[in-house]
Design a protein around this nucleic acid. Structure first.
Lengths: 207, 207
DNA sequence: GCTAACTTGTGAACGAATTCACAAGCCCCC
DNA sequence: GGGGGCTTGTGAATTCGTTCACAAGTTAGC
Protein backbone atom coordinates (compact mmCIF):
# COMPACT_ATOMS: atom_id res chain seq x y z
CA UNK A 1 0.00 0.00 0.00
CA UNK A 2 1.10 3.54 -0.76
CA UNK A 3 2.51 5.31 2.24
CA UNK A 4 -0.09 7.44 3.98
CA UNK A 5 0.92 10.83 5.33
CA UNK A 6 0.62 11.47 9.01
CA UNK A 7 -1.45 14.54 8.30
CA UNK A 8 -3.94 12.41 6.39
CA UNK A 9 -4.45 10.09 9.35
CA UNK A 10 -4.91 13.02 11.69
CA UNK A 11 -7.58 14.45 9.45
CA UNK A 12 -9.39 11.12 9.21
CA UNK A 13 -9.48 11.11 12.97
CA UNK A 14 -10.99 14.56 12.86
CA UNK A 15 -13.59 13.65 10.24
CA UNK A 16 -14.60 10.67 12.32
CA UNK A 17 -15.38 12.91 15.24
CA UNK A 18 -17.73 15.00 13.10
CA UNK A 19 -19.33 11.93 11.61
CA UNK A 20 -20.09 10.52 15.03
CA UNK A 21 -21.65 13.81 15.92
CA UNK A 22 -23.79 13.72 12.78
CA UNK A 23 -24.67 10.11 13.39
CA UNK A 24 -26.02 10.91 16.83
CA UNK A 25 -28.13 13.67 15.38
CA UNK A 26 -29.57 11.18 12.93
CA UNK A 27 -28.26 12.74 9.74
CA UNK A 28 -28.07 10.38 6.77
CA UNK A 29 -25.63 11.96 4.36
CA UNK A 30 -22.85 14.50 4.35
CA UNK A 31 -20.82 16.14 1.58
CA UNK A 32 -17.08 16.55 1.45
CA UNK A 33 -17.66 20.28 1.66
CA UNK A 34 -19.55 20.13 4.95
CA UNK A 35 -16.87 17.91 6.42
CA UNK A 36 -14.20 20.29 5.15
CA UNK A 37 -15.78 23.36 6.67
CA UNK A 38 -15.91 21.86 10.13
CA UNK A 39 -12.40 20.55 9.85
CA UNK A 40 -10.97 23.80 8.60
CA UNK A 41 -9.84 22.33 5.31
CA UNK A 42 -11.08 22.06 1.71
CA UNK A 43 -13.47 19.63 0.08
CA UNK A 44 -10.74 18.51 -2.30
CA UNK A 45 -8.58 17.64 0.66
CA UNK A 46 -11.34 15.56 2.22
CA UNK A 47 -11.96 13.65 -0.99
CA UNK A 48 -8.26 13.11 -1.56
CA UNK A 49 -7.80 11.82 1.98
CA UNK A 50 -10.58 9.31 1.52
CA UNK A 51 -9.51 8.32 -1.98
CA UNK A 52 -6.33 6.72 -0.61
CA UNK A 53 -8.52 4.03 0.90
CA UNK A 54 -11.32 3.60 -1.59
CA UNK A 55 -14.36 5.44 -2.89
CA UNK A 56 -17.03 5.65 -0.29
CA UNK A 57 -19.31 8.35 -1.64
CA UNK A 58 -22.08 8.71 -4.19
CA UNK A 59 -21.64 11.34 -6.87
CA UNK A 60 -24.27 14.01 -6.68
CA UNK A 61 -25.23 12.98 -3.19
CA UNK A 62 -22.32 12.79 -0.83
CA UNK A 63 -21.38 10.20 1.77
CA UNK A 64 -23.60 8.00 3.88
CA UNK A 65 -22.83 9.07 7.44
CA UNK A 66 -23.02 5.62 9.05
CA UNK A 67 -21.08 3.96 6.28
CA UNK A 68 -18.29 6.49 6.11
CA UNK A 69 -18.10 6.43 9.86
CA UNK A 70 -17.70 2.69 9.83
CA UNK A 71 -15.14 2.79 7.05
CA UNK A 72 -12.94 5.36 8.77
CA UNK A 73 -13.07 3.42 12.02
CA UNK A 74 -11.95 0.39 10.07
CA UNK A 75 -9.11 2.28 8.38
CA UNK A 76 -7.83 3.72 11.62
CA UNK A 77 -8.17 0.37 13.31
CA UNK A 78 -10.80 1.27 15.85
CA UNK A 79 -12.76 -1.87 15.16
CA UNK A 80 -11.01 -3.69 17.98
CA UNK A 81 -10.01 -3.01 21.54
CA UNK A 82 -6.50 -1.83 22.24
CA UNK A 83 -4.76 -2.78 25.44
CA UNK A 84 -2.94 0.17 26.92
CA UNK A 85 -0.52 0.38 29.83
CA UNK A 86 0.47 3.60 31.57
CA UNK A 87 4.09 3.77 32.68
CA UNK A 88 4.55 6.47 35.31
CA UNK A 89 1.83 7.24 37.85
CA UNK A 90 2.40 10.96 38.19
CA UNK A 91 -0.03 13.80 37.64
CA UNK A 92 -0.27 13.35 33.90
CA UNK A 93 -0.67 9.61 34.23
CA UNK A 94 -3.49 10.27 36.66
CA UNK A 95 -5.25 12.64 34.32
CA UNK A 96 -4.99 10.11 31.51
CA UNK A 97 -6.04 7.10 33.54
CA UNK A 98 -9.37 8.63 34.32
CA UNK A 99 -9.95 10.29 30.99
CA UNK A 100 -13.16 8.81 29.63
CA UNK A 101 -12.40 9.53 26.00
CA UNK A 102 -9.97 6.63 25.86
CA UNK A 103 -12.33 3.84 26.78
CA UNK A 104 -14.96 5.27 24.46
CA UNK A 105 -12.67 4.80 21.53
CA UNK A 106 -11.65 1.30 22.51
CA UNK A 107 -8.43 2.10 24.34
CA UNK A 108 -8.52 0.12 27.56
CA UNK A 109 -6.06 0.71 30.31
CA UNK A 110 -4.98 -2.69 31.55
CA UNK A 111 -2.14 -1.72 33.89
CA UNK A 112 -0.44 1.24 35.54
CA UNK A 113 3.20 1.14 36.66
CA UNK A 114 5.45 3.21 38.86
CA UNK A 115 8.78 2.80 40.60
CA UNK A 116 8.00 4.72 43.77
CA UNK A 117 7.31 2.47 46.79
CA UNK A 118 4.73 4.94 48.11
CA UNK A 119 2.67 4.63 44.97
CA UNK A 120 2.98 0.92 44.29
CA UNK A 121 -0.03 -0.95 45.62
CA UNK A 122 -2.22 2.10 45.83
CA UNK A 123 -5.48 1.89 43.98
CA UNK A 124 -6.14 4.20 41.19
CA UNK A 125 -9.33 4.40 39.23
CA UNK A 126 -10.01 0.65 39.27
CA UNK A 127 -6.32 -0.13 38.75
CA UNK A 128 -3.77 -1.03 41.37
CA UNK A 129 -0.45 0.62 40.67
CA UNK A 130 2.10 -2.07 39.95
CA UNK A 131 5.83 -2.23 40.50
CA UNK A 132 7.69 -1.26 37.36
CA UNK A 133 9.92 -4.28 37.92
CA UNK A 134 6.96 -6.43 36.87
CA UNK A 135 6.78 -4.75 33.46
CA UNK A 136 8.58 -7.43 31.46
CA UNK A 137 6.87 -10.29 33.25
CA UNK A 138 3.37 -8.82 32.90
CA UNK A 139 3.90 -7.80 29.29
CA UNK A 140 4.86 -11.31 28.27
CA UNK A 141 1.59 -12.54 29.72
CA UNK A 142 -0.86 -9.72 29.09
CA UNK A 143 0.41 -8.56 25.71
CA UNK A 144 -0.51 -4.90 25.81
CA UNK A 145 -0.54 -3.11 22.46
CA UNK A 146 0.30 0.43 23.46
CA UNK A 147 2.40 2.00 26.22
CA UNK A 148 1.77 5.54 27.44
CA UNK A 149 5.01 6.91 28.81
CA UNK A 150 4.62 9.52 31.54
CA UNK A 151 7.90 9.28 33.42
CA UNK A 152 10.36 12.14 34.04
CA UNK A 153 12.51 13.16 31.07
CA UNK A 154 15.70 11.68 32.52
CA UNK A 155 14.12 8.24 32.75
CA UNK A 156 12.22 8.28 29.47
CA UNK A 157 14.76 6.80 27.05
CA UNK A 158 15.76 3.98 29.38
CA UNK A 159 12.13 3.13 30.01
CA UNK A 160 11.36 3.23 26.31
CA UNK A 161 14.17 0.75 25.74
CA UNK A 162 12.60 -1.61 28.24
CA UNK A 163 9.18 -1.19 26.67
CA UNK A 164 10.59 -1.91 23.22
CA UNK A 165 12.51 -4.92 24.47
CA UNK A 166 9.34 -6.24 26.05
CA UNK A 167 7.82 -6.28 22.57
CA UNK A 168 5.43 -3.33 22.58
CA UNK A 169 5.24 -1.69 19.17
CA UNK A 170 3.46 1.61 19.87
CA UNK A 171 4.29 4.28 22.42
CA UNK A 172 2.72 7.60 23.31
CA UNK A 173 5.36 9.72 25.01
CA UNK A 174 4.68 12.70 27.26
CA UNK A 175 8.26 13.43 28.30
CA UNK A 176 9.62 16.55 26.60
CA UNK A 177 12.57 14.75 25.04
CA UNK A 178 13.35 13.25 21.66
CA UNK A 179 13.34 9.47 21.89
CA UNK A 180 15.16 6.96 19.72
CA UNK A 181 13.38 3.74 18.82
CA UNK A 182 13.79 1.04 16.17
CA UNK A 183 11.84 1.58 12.95
CA UNK A 184 9.24 -1.08 13.67
CA UNK A 185 8.16 0.76 16.81
CA UNK A 186 5.92 3.80 16.39
CA UNK A 187 6.49 6.57 18.90
CA UNK A 188 4.24 9.62 19.04
CA UNK A 189 5.04 12.45 21.36
CA UNK A 190 2.83 14.99 23.03
CA UNK A 191 5.06 17.87 23.93
CA UNK A 192 3.32 20.73 25.66
CA UNK A 193 6.51 22.72 26.11
CA UNK A 194 7.03 22.66 22.37
CA UNK A 195 3.50 23.85 21.71
CA UNK A 196 3.89 26.68 24.17
CA UNK A 197 7.10 27.71 22.50
CA UNK A 198 5.24 27.70 19.20
CA UNK A 199 2.85 30.20 20.74
CA UNK A 200 5.74 32.26 22.04
CA UNK A 201 7.19 32.35 18.54
CA UNK A 202 3.86 33.37 17.04
CA UNK A 203 3.43 36.18 19.58
CA UNK A 204 6.99 37.38 19.06
CA UNK A 205 7.06 37.28 15.27
CA UNK A 206 3.85 39.05 14.36
CA UNK A 207 3.78 41.15 11.19
CA UNK B 1 9.96 38.38 6.90
CA UNK B 2 9.50 35.17 4.95
CA UNK B 3 6.90 32.93 6.50
CA UNK B 4 8.44 30.29 8.72
CA UNK B 5 7.02 26.78 8.67
CA UNK B 6 5.57 25.40 11.84
CA UNK B 7 7.85 22.39 11.58
CA UNK B 8 10.87 24.67 11.56
CA UNK B 9 9.82 26.32 14.81
CA UNK B 10 9.23 22.95 16.42
CA UNK B 11 12.68 21.81 15.47
CA UNK B 12 14.26 24.99 16.81
CA UNK B 13 12.55 24.23 20.07
CA UNK B 14 14.07 20.78 19.97
CA UNK B 15 17.56 22.01 19.15
CA UNK B 16 17.34 24.45 22.02
CA UNK B 17 16.72 21.61 24.43
CA UNK B 18 19.88 19.83 23.27
CA UNK B 19 21.88 23.02 23.39
CA UNK B 20 20.86 23.66 26.99
CA UNK B 21 21.94 20.16 27.77
CA UNK B 22 25.32 20.71 26.13
CA UNK B 23 25.66 24.06 27.84
CA UNK B 24 25.25 22.49 31.24
CA UNK B 25 27.86 19.93 30.41
CA UNK B 26 30.21 22.75 29.54
CA UNK B 27 30.66 21.96 25.86
CA UNK B 28 31.80 24.87 23.75
CA UNK B 29 30.85 24.01 20.19
CA UNK B 30 28.51 21.71 18.32
CA UNK B 31 28.11 20.79 14.65
CA UNK B 32 24.90 20.67 12.68
CA UNK B 33 25.44 16.95 12.36
CA UNK B 34 25.53 16.31 16.10
CA UNK B 35 22.41 18.38 16.54
CA UNK B 36 20.75 16.50 13.70
CA UNK B 37 21.50 13.07 15.10
CA UNK B 38 19.94 13.87 18.44
CA UNK B 39 16.94 15.44 16.82
CA UNK B 40 16.40 12.61 14.40
CA UNK B 41 16.91 14.78 11.34
CA UNK B 42 19.71 15.67 8.91
CA UNK B 43 22.50 18.19 9.16
CA UNK B 44 21.22 19.96 6.06
CA UNK B 45 17.87 20.36 7.74
CA UNK B 46 19.47 21.90 10.81
CA UNK B 47 21.47 24.35 8.78
CA UNK B 48 18.48 25.27 6.63
CA UNK B 49 16.34 25.85 9.70
CA UNK B 50 18.92 28.20 11.17
CA UNK B 51 19.62 29.94 7.89
CA UNK B 52 16.13 31.46 7.88
CA UNK B 53 17.22 33.64 10.78
CA UNK B 54 20.87 34.35 10.06
CA UNK B 55 24.20 32.60 10.01
CA UNK B 56 25.33 31.68 13.45
CA UNK B 57 28.06 29.15 12.78
CA UNK B 58 31.70 29.09 11.85
CA UNK B 59 32.70 27.06 8.81
CA UNK B 60 35.00 24.22 9.67
CA UNK B 61 34.17 24.50 13.33
CA UNK B 62 30.44 24.43 14.01
CA UNK B 63 28.29 26.53 16.31
CA UNK B 64 29.17 28.11 19.62
CA UNK B 65 26.83 26.40 22.08
CA UNK B 66 26.10 29.43 24.28
CA UNK B 67 25.67 31.75 21.34
CA UNK B 68 23.38 29.50 19.33
CA UNK B 69 21.42 28.81 22.48
CA UNK B 70 20.94 32.52 23.04
CA UNK B 71 20.02 33.16 19.43
CA UNK B 72 17.36 30.47 19.33
CA UNK B 73 15.86 31.68 22.59
CA UNK B 74 15.70 35.12 21.03
CA UNK B 75 14.08 33.80 17.84
CA UNK B 76 11.45 31.82 19.70
CA UNK B 77 10.78 34.71 22.02
CA UNK B 78 11.92 33.13 25.26
CA UNK B 79 13.80 36.24 26.30
CA UNK B 80 10.82 37.52 28.24
CA UNK B 81 8.27 36.16 30.68
CA UNK B 82 4.92 35.08 29.35
CA UNK B 83 1.82 35.44 31.46
CA UNK B 84 -0.34 32.34 31.22
CA UNK B 85 -3.84 31.65 32.52
CA UNK B 86 -5.38 28.22 32.85
CA UNK B 87 -9.07 28.02 32.03
CA UNK B 88 -10.59 24.86 33.50
CA UNK B 89 -9.37 23.42 36.79
CA UNK B 90 -9.86 19.74 36.00
CA UNK B 91 -7.33 16.95 36.08
CA UNK B 92 -5.36 18.15 33.10
CA UNK B 93 -5.36 21.70 34.36
CA UNK B 94 -4.00 20.40 37.65
CA UNK B 95 -1.22 18.47 35.98
CA UNK B 96 -0.24 21.55 33.99
CA UNK B 97 -0.44 24.00 36.89
CA UNK B 98 2.18 22.13 38.82
CA UNK B 99 4.38 21.21 35.90
CA UNK B 100 7.75 22.77 36.60
CA UNK B 101 8.86 22.87 33.00
CA UNK B 102 6.65 25.85 32.31
CA UNK B 103 8.15 28.26 34.79
CA UNK B 104 11.65 27.19 33.77
CA UNK B 105 11.01 28.41 30.27
CA UNK B 106 9.46 31.68 31.36
CA UNK B 107 5.81 30.69 31.21
CA UNK B 108 4.26 31.94 34.44
CA UNK B 109 0.83 30.92 35.49
CA UNK B 110 -0.90 34.03 36.76
CA UNK B 111 -4.44 32.74 37.20
CA UNK B 112 -6.59 29.61 37.17
CA UNK B 113 -10.32 29.69 36.43
CA UNK B 114 -13.25 27.33 36.78
CA UNK B 115 -17.01 27.56 36.75
CA UNK B 116 -17.75 24.98 39.45
CA UNK B 117 -18.68 26.50 42.84
CA UNK B 118 -16.94 23.65 44.66
CA UNK B 119 -13.65 24.49 43.03
CA UNK B 120 -13.77 28.28 43.10
CA UNK B 121 -11.86 29.64 46.05
CA UNK B 122 -9.89 26.51 46.63
CA UNK B 123 -6.17 26.90 46.66
CA UNK B 124 -4.11 25.19 44.10
CA UNK B 125 -0.38 25.23 43.91
CA UNK B 126 -0.01 28.84 45.05
CA UNK B 127 -3.03 29.91 43.00
CA UNK B 128 -6.56 30.42 44.22
CA UNK B 129 -9.06 29.14 41.69
CA UNK B 130 -11.08 32.07 40.44
CA UNK B 131 -14.63 32.31 39.18
CA UNK B 132 -14.70 32.13 35.40
CA UNK B 133 -17.07 35.10 35.45
CA UNK B 134 -14.11 37.24 36.42
CA UNK B 135 -12.23 36.32 33.24
CA UNK B 136 -13.00 39.46 31.24
CA UNK B 137 -12.50 41.77 34.19
CA UNK B 138 -9.19 40.20 35.24
CA UNK B 139 -7.88 40.02 31.71
CA UNK B 140 -8.42 43.70 31.12
CA UNK B 141 -6.31 44.42 34.18
CA UNK B 142 -3.71 41.65 34.21
CA UNK B 143 -3.18 41.30 30.47
CA UNK B 144 -2.20 37.66 30.21
CA UNK B 145 -0.49 36.62 26.98
CA UNK B 146 -1.53 33.01 26.67
CA UNK B 147 -4.60 31.01 27.71
CA UNK B 148 -4.45 27.27 28.28
CA UNK B 149 -7.88 25.83 27.62
CA UNK B 150 -8.70 22.68 29.59
CA UNK B 151 -12.49 22.70 29.68
CA UNK B 152 -14.79 19.92 28.42
CA UNK B 153 -15.23 19.68 24.66
CA UNK B 154 -18.78 21.01 24.69
CA UNK B 155 -17.69 24.22 26.38
CA UNK B 156 -14.46 24.76 24.47
CA UNK B 157 -15.61 26.86 21.51
CA UNK B 158 -17.74 29.18 23.63
CA UNK B 159 -14.89 29.66 26.07
CA UNK B 160 -12.46 30.31 23.26
CA UNK B 161 -14.77 33.02 21.96
CA UNK B 162 -14.70 34.69 25.35
CA UNK B 163 -10.94 34.43 25.55
CA UNK B 164 -10.57 35.94 22.10
CA UNK B 165 -12.99 38.73 22.88
CA UNK B 166 -11.03 39.50 26.02
CA UNK B 167 -8.05 40.19 23.77
CA UNK B 168 -5.81 37.17 24.30
CA UNK B 169 -3.93 36.27 21.11
CA UNK B 170 -2.54 32.81 21.85
CA UNK B 171 -4.34 29.70 23.07
CA UNK B 172 -3.22 26.18 23.87
CA UNK B 173 -6.24 23.91 23.60
CA UNK B 174 -6.56 20.48 25.22
CA UNK B 175 -10.17 19.76 24.24
CA UNK B 176 -10.40 17.15 21.48
CA UNK B 177 -12.35 19.40 19.12
CA UNK B 178 -11.52 21.61 16.18
CA UNK B 179 -11.79 25.25 17.19
CA UNK B 180 -12.48 28.29 15.02
CA UNK B 181 -10.65 31.51 15.78
CA UNK B 182 -9.89 34.74 13.92
CA UNK B 183 -6.61 34.79 11.98
CA UNK B 184 -4.81 37.09 14.40
CA UNK B 185 -5.25 34.56 17.19
CA UNK B 186 -2.92 31.55 17.25
CA UNK B 187 -4.49 28.35 18.52
CA UNK B 188 -2.42 25.20 19.08
CA UNK B 189 -4.08 22.00 20.07
CA UNK B 190 -2.82 19.04 22.02
CA UNK B 191 -5.06 16.15 21.14
CA UNK B 192 -4.20 12.90 22.85
CA UNK B 193 -7.09 11.04 21.30
CA UNK B 194 -5.77 11.91 17.87
CA UNK B 195 -2.29 10.70 18.74
CA UNK B 196 -3.63 7.43 20.08
CA UNK B 197 -5.60 6.93 16.90
CA UNK B 198 -2.40 7.56 14.98
CA UNK B 199 -0.88 4.67 16.91
CA UNK B 200 -3.91 2.53 16.21
CA UNK B 201 -3.52 3.27 12.52
CA UNK B 202 0.18 2.43 12.60
CA UNK B 203 -0.47 -0.87 14.38
CA UNK B 204 -3.26 -1.76 11.99
CA UNK B 205 -1.53 -0.85 8.75
CA UNK B 206 1.80 -2.57 9.11
CA UNK B 207 3.50 -3.95 6.02
C1' DG C 1 -36.83 10.38 -20.46
C1' DC C 2 -34.61 14.71 -20.48
C1' DT C 3 -32.53 18.61 -18.17
C1' DA C 4 -30.62 21.11 -14.33
C1' DA C 5 -28.24 21.08 -10.18
C1' DC C 6 -25.09 18.64 -7.37
C1' DT C 7 -21.19 16.05 -5.75
C1' DT C 8 -17.59 12.62 -6.14
C1' DG C 9 -13.04 10.86 -7.67
C1' DT C 10 -8.79 11.84 -9.68
C1' DG C 11 -5.05 13.20 -12.94
C1' DA C 12 -2.45 17.49 -13.46
C1' DA C 13 -0.62 21.76 -11.71
C1' DC C 14 1.14 23.93 -8.04
C1' DG C 15 3.49 25.01 -3.80
C1' DA C 16 6.00 23.88 0.27
C1' DA C 17 9.45 21.42 2.69
C1' DT C 18 13.39 18.48 2.54
C1' DT C 19 17.59 16.77 0.68
C1' DC C 20 21.57 17.19 -2.35
C1' DA C 21 25.79 18.92 -3.52
C1' DC C 22 29.32 21.98 -3.52
C1' DA C 23 31.78 26.52 -3.10
C1' DA C 24 33.50 29.22 0.60
C1' DG C 25 35.62 29.69 4.95
C1' DC C 26 38.11 28.18 9.10
C1' DC C 27 41.56 25.58 11.91
C1' DC C 28 45.53 22.90 12.76
C1' DC C 29 49.77 20.98 11.80
C1' DC C 30 53.89 20.50 9.52
C1' DG D 1 52.39 29.88 4.92
C1' DG D 2 50.44 26.14 2.43
C1' DG D 3 47.79 21.86 2.36
C1' DG D 4 44.44 18.69 4.32
C1' DG D 5 40.45 17.94 6.78
C1' DC D 6 36.24 19.85 8.52
C1' DT D 7 31.90 22.32 8.56
C1' DT D 8 28.86 25.98 7.21
C1' DG D 9 25.52 28.32 4.13
C1' DT D 10 22.77 28.04 0.20
C1' DG D 11 21.08 27.61 -4.68
C1' DA D 12 19.24 23.62 -7.29
C1' DA D 13 16.94 19.32 -7.46
C1' DT D 14 13.76 16.47 -5.54
C1' DT D 15 10.12 14.76 -2.89
C1' DC D 16 5.91 15.30 -0.67
C1' DG D 17 1.41 17.31 0.19
C1' DT D 18 -2.32 20.36 -1.30
C1' DT D 19 -5.25 22.56 -4.53
C1' DC D 20 -7.32 22.91 -9.12
C1' DA D 21 -10.35 21.62 -12.48
C1' DC D 22 -13.21 18.72 -14.77
C1' DA D 23 -15.27 14.29 -16.49
C1' DA D 24 -18.41 11.03 -14.72
C1' DG D 25 -22.20 9.72 -12.01
C1' DT D 26 -26.50 10.66 -9.20
C1' DT D 27 -30.97 12.74 -7.99
C1' DA D 28 -35.09 15.46 -8.57
C1' DG D 29 -38.37 17.81 -11.11
C1' DC D 30 -41.07 18.32 -15.00
Amino acid sequence: MKRIADSTVRRLSLYLRFLEDFEQRGLETISSDELAQRGGTTSAQVRKDLSFFGSFGKRGLGYSVPELSRRIREIIGLGREWRVIIVGAGKIGAALAQYQGFAQRGFHIVAVYDSSPEKIGRSWNSQTIRDIRQLEHDTAREKPDIAVLTVPSEAAQAMLDRIVKAGIKAVLNFAPVQLQAPPDVTVKSVNMAMELEGLSFALTNRD
